[in-house]
Every structure is written in C-alpha cells, then in structure tokens.
Design a binder for these strands. Structure first.
Lengths: 105, 105
DNA sequence: CGTGTAAGGAATTCTGACACG
DNA sequence: CGTGTAAGGAATTCTGACACG
C-alpha cells in the first residue's frame, strides 16, 4: 500500500536464500562483496541482508565471470552503469573494456 | 529480468524481518498462522518464509484485531476476498460480518 | 584469482507448554 | 482469545585461515 515497487530494493533476503535464488555458493557471494561488487546491508548482529536487485545483480556478475571477465573489470562496468554521465571522462580506459565485453558477448 | 513483479510473492523473508517490517511480535505472527490467516512457506528444515504480500496482509490483520475483530471473522473476510464469485452464495451469513466491519471502520 | 572447506562461536528459529484472562 | 515468556534443541550465518593454482 505505501511501499509500491520498492520491494526490489528492500534488503531482507539472507544469504542462504540468495544461494537458492542464484545458484551461487555462499563463498562466491561473500567474495563478490569483498571485491565491492555487491553491497548487502547488515543486521545489528552482522547478518547479511540482500534485496531482489542484489540477486539480479549477482546473476549478472556470475555471467560476466563465466565469460572470463575478472572482478576488477566487472566493478568498472557496474560503476559505469551507475554514473553514465562520467562516460566521457573515462572514455579511453573504458573503451578497451567495452571492446572486450562486446567480444565475449 | 525474468521475474517481473512477482517479487511481492517470493517467500524469502524470515520471521525476524517480518517482525521489523510489521512491528508485530514473533508470537503474534505464529499465532496468525495457527489460525489460518497467513500461510508462509517452510524451508526443508522448517524455517518460515514470508513474502511481501504476506507482510502487507499481516498489517491488515493487525489492524482488524486492533479494531476488535477476532481471528475467525478475519478469516471469513480474507476468504471472501479470495473468492469474490462466492459472494452471492454466502450472502446471508456474510451480510452480518460485513455489517460489523462497516461499523468498526 | 576465484572458490572449496573445516573450525568455533554467535545469532536465529522452532515447538510445546504454562500463564493470564 | 490473543499474547508473553522460559526451555532446549536444531538450523543458519559469521570470520579468518589454509588450500589450489
């Protein structure tokens, strides 16, 4: 009623369910967090909480990794999606990555 | 991507988070399940999993109870919402309940 | 680099029961 | 009737480390 489509952003999914939803292992998910690819919330006692958007993002990350893209490149990719206005500034270094993504896709 | 707006129906929220989202106690939520007002999934090991729809439903249930409506009447109300085509068949007995709901609202 | 695993501890959830009313 | 609580056990998650490569 009050919260319309923000369900995708509510961080309420624990890591075990994220595993089921994505097919990834707990180890993988924690590692992607360590590499700054994903940013779960934490309960006051330290338990990770993910959103459905996080789950979708994790699937994309896994796809990129399966394509041979490493975590550093994926981080660049994600940052670019977040700040499309910076596209021009980082054009040169990102040009190579884009080319790579187009090749493997 | 594949799952569009079905996020509201995915049963992935554990009871502790449902408490936070609704303000209800664990005891209350379990009791409403016992009274057949809410139907969480269960993990293979017995842990309850709720959806965002369940969370919304729980808030409505709590509001009804705060209005003095008992769980049996709430169950009738919920059943009516589920099967609106049966409205005419149960018209007589439900008429009283509807009247009651209108009074307290 | 990305992922598996065993280790030990902490946090979460479960059920059935007693209590009050 | 609806809800609180203490009890004991089971399931979940956490971190840091070692391993392989």
């Amino acid at each position: 009623m009050e919260t319309k489509d923000s369900y995708k952003d509510r961080k309420v999914i624990k890591i075990g369910d994220v595993c089921e939803l994505t097919g990834l292992s707990v180890r993988q998910i924690r590692y992607y967090e360590e590499r700054k690819l994903i940013f779960p919330d934490r309960s006051s006692t330290g338990i990770r909480k993910f959103s459905f958007n996080d789950v979708e993002k994790l699937v994309e990350i896994a796809n990129h990794l399966a394509d041979g893209v490493n975590t550093h490149e994926i981080r660049q990719e994600l940052r670019r999606k977040q700040n499309p206005q910076q596209e021009k500034r980082n054009e040169m270094i990102e040009g190579q990555i884009n080319a790579h993504f187009k090749l493997v896709k």
